[in-house]
Design a protein around this nucleic acid. Structure first.
Lengths: 338, 338
DNA sequence: TTCTGGCACTCACCACCGCTGAGTGCCAGC
DNA sequence: GCTGGCACTCAGCGGTGGTGAGTGCCAGAA
């Protein structure tokens, strides 16, 4: 087990390295943090920390740099979450309060997160799985063509074309619309299938084909849309990544363009707490030199989606975690109000 | 006026430079292109071209590099648009045909363009200004709260909350819905305001407040949504930009995050032809070392929105223009079908 | 007039060299 | 277990010289 002082040394190394972006040596450490011991002692501690794999030297005769394992220990044991200042919190609230619709909420959240953390921000649109149906609308566009519009309690709207096997009259459409709504409004997506399965039986034989087509499209929309949409922002912050550019930044940009990768990234966060994945803990290898801080947010007590930031492993963890948590909290409030 | 051969030399310089990314010298030129004259002659021509500002030397004793003015001449006079191969065209069509909804069409288009051109792609969502109304839907959510849903012929759906000054009955809502639709369906957005202005008069005094609120929101939506949405992709291609990285790429990433900038960028394209803006021709200074190739696309004869790519001034113009034009054409087809 | 071969010149790039200084590991002594 | 001292390592920096691609200019040929 590492002594108290050695942990203190590790903390100091992480803080200094994050600040200066340069390997930190024993002398500088004793000067900047009042460790009350000599550089030589610190060197011994560093040797021990290196032995255990918490820090590493880029090359002999250079200072030490934290490893992924070192950051992990730092995040788990040594650092808290740094709360935002009152002014910052007010600014967040004002900025988000000005949103006009769901797209705007998400867009603003992304910009806000990117700006606060000076990193790349990722925000998932509120999930449909946990959402409930607010309204289903059916419109006749042509005799055998309908448009289905689904509106959720989170303010999301999805629409699909439905091509029916045969024409369906306006009154039948109205009837179907009414019956559909009376059954599914206020219900969770997951419960919809069983609630509508016997609907075709209530209609004339002539119309059943069309009704079935509508239901099929509806169910498909519910399922398909569980694949969430995302918005990302602040990619310009990647330029602050490091000096050895193209190689570092490229795989990250590529990873960020793949929705699937991003969704997985966020997906691993648990509902309750914040998740921090450091360097190689990220499954995707393009993100091996990045850390991801993510958290769920929700309108009620439950999380409906996730948001987070992607940055270099050398990031200000307490500050980033503070910002992510605060933003998630406010977005939740905004969603609850609307 | 430049002689035929000098134009030929300029063309050769552009082609070589685009291929190798290195300043091109007189000897290499005569070897790679069969110019039928000696390097010395070419040197004289180069001196003349430089005099006129079409090419420049990064430093003495280096080869020549085209200037923005040189590229401009190349694009205007020396290069055609390189059509895609039959296989490429088939691939485009197959890929786009698989789209399920508008978001998907735009998303696929962006990915396609980025992949074909190996540059950053920007696609504007079909504009509402030129669109027509397919349907307006009104839903009562609470006694004095309605939801307004607007569906366009391009498949776009917008929804807004309407808070009415007082409660409005279900029959009045249905009446308003019917009247609204009978007046505006099939009409252009720009014509809607005058078509609905006298609607409140058809209602009881009790309901007029609510009707006015609905109309106000509708008109607001029409106007607001002329600010288009965009989708961008292929940012990872920026890493192929140049060697002197952070400085080149950063302002571009920043510019790409600002919707306003991008919209202006595309906005300058004329409806009919393709627009190529080279280097300093772009108003935004972050994009001074990039070229933008853009073109309008549309479902009918008319352009409803724009799309394009952003890349280094040193880009393969004929190929890029070919890809952009082809993609725009197919997207237009897809939109016309749906 | 226009093109060509020849020639001197320029200068970015690269490899090499030695210096400097931050940082290290180890050890003997407190 | 901590400290001061000491020898060692090595990335980074600036200077140096050679190389070669590329140039401009000029005199002579077509």
């Amino acid at each position: 087990m590492l002594s108290e002082r050695r942990l203190e040394v590790l903390r100091a190394i992480v803080q200094d390295y994050v600040g200066t972006e340069e390997p930190v040596g024993s002398k500088a450490l004793t000067e900047r943090h009042n460790l009350q011991v000599s550089p030589a002692t610190v060197r011994n501690d560093m040797a021990a920390l290196e032995e255990e794999g918490y820090i590493a030297q880029p090359h002999t005769s250079a200072g030490r740099v934290p490893t992924d394992k070192g950051y992990r220990l730092f995040v788990d044991k040594l650092a808290g979450v740094k709360p935002l200042s009152a002014a910052e919190r007010r600014a967040i609230q004002n900025f988000l309060d000005a949103s006009v619709d769901l797209d705007d909420v998400v867009g603003r959240t992304v910009r806000l997160l990117a700006q606060l953390t000076r990193q790349v921000a990722v925000v998932q649109y509120p999930s449909l799985t946990r959402s409930t149906v607010r309204h289903v609308e059916l419109l006749s566009l042509a005799p055998a063509r309908l448009m289905l519009v689904l509106i959720t309690d989170t303010g999301r709207v999805e629409q699909r074309m439905v091509d029916c096997p045969g024409p369906i009259g306006e009154t039948s459409v109205a009837d179907l619309r009414a019956r559909l709504n009376s059954r599914v409004v206020g219900q969770r997506f997951t419960e919809v299938p069983q609630l509508v399965q016997d609907l075709p039986e209530a209609f004339d034989l002539d119309d059943r084909g069309a009704v079935s087509a509508v239901l099929a499209t509806l169910l498909e929309t519910l399922v398909e849309d569980t694949e969430e949409r995302l918005m990302i922002g602040g990619t310009a912050n990647l330029t602050r990544f490091g000096h050895d550019f193209p190689l570092t930044i490229r795989p990250v940009l590529e990873a960020l363009e793949e929705q699937v990768v991003l969704l997985k990234l966020l997906g691993e966060a648990t509902d309750s707490g914040m998740t921090v994945r450091i360097g190689h803990e990220n499954a995707h290898e393009g993100l091996n030199s990045t850390s991801v801080v993510s958290v769920g947010y929700g309108s009620g007590g439950e999380a409906v989606a996730k948001l987070g930031v992607v940055g270099p492993t050398r990031m200000d963890y307490p500050g980033t975690m503070g910002a992510v948590r605060a933003v998630a909290r406010y977005v939740g409030q905004i969603l609850a109000e609307s």
